[in-house]
Amino acid sequence: MGHRTIAGFAASAFATIALSTGALAQDWQPSGPINIIVPWGAGGSTDQVARVTAPLIAEALGVNVVIVNQPGASGSIGTQAVLDAPRDGMTWTANAIKNNATYSVSGLIEDTSIDDWHIYLSVANAPLVSVPADSEFQDFGELLEAFRTRGEDITVATAGGTSSGGTAIASLATAGDFDYRMITYDGGAPAAIATASGEAMVTTQLAVEQTELVRGGRLRALAILSDQPLIVEGVDPVPPITDWLDMPIAPDYFGIFIPRGVPDEVIATMDRIWEENVANSDALREYAETFGAVLAPSWGEEARARSIPIAISDACGKASRGEAVIEPAELGFDCETMSEIDSQ
């Protein structure tokens, strides 16, 4: 009967192939489905952008692009898996670029830097400070006061120390000179949901992860970590953090990254796809407008240049809080001038 079962399996395999889209001519033709490992939970900011971008790439390459969520340990488990995978161009990751640039600073992944990746940026996201709808805090001023007086009694839900929310609360604490108690969840969406349910008192995850809950009246948005107010349909404009605190703001870029060492034609093909199929896609624009992200497509050297400020501010922030296991200078980041050392 073994053969009979195998016949069944084979039939299913061919059905699957028939379902995948037809291929377009490209210089690089992947031999199978491409895996994008999202090292965060499904529904989070990284996952959302990856899922908007994946079909665009799938259509252009003519193969399936599969999103694999591999959350855990501030995204380092999934990222490590991509670094460990064969460099055949079939395994990519999606993340916020500052994470990939600073995993070695926090010690989560040893010996890695921004130059381990070919960078394809799609959007920039800003963290949003929110509290449950029934919270005692009506605006950010009240919350800031509470942080300064009650410190570690205020619980802040994030997706972990190196997540966008974790970095945001850390830099807020530095700028506002206060203490807090961070509670780690498996991703940005779970952190936002836990805050909406009242388990945590504040969340500083990204706006895109919270807009649905804010729109549904379950979270109250207090301030956006940007120098511009956040304006999204169905939500009152959210004031910028600069109304209360004087702090550096670096745009937090998200995108898809391919590990260095893959064949050149992979990168040539992806450069063209990003320019022709992703940068000006309606799907990505619509996503950004609905969820409060900023459309910011770039690739190659430009993408790297754009990523450096947030990477430096994140790495130096970790170092100043004593969370770094290696000096940012080892990555070529100068924390005095907040710029890159040229020898890099």
Partner: peptide, 21 residues
């Protein structure tokens, strides 16, 4: 493998493959 709160690798005995659990 690596635990979810602080990214500490438990009981991996130096085997990298065990890091992912």
């Amino acid at each position: 493998g690596m635990e979810g709160l602080h990214a500490y690798r438990r009981f991996t005995f130096g085997v990298p493959a065990l890091g992912g659990g």
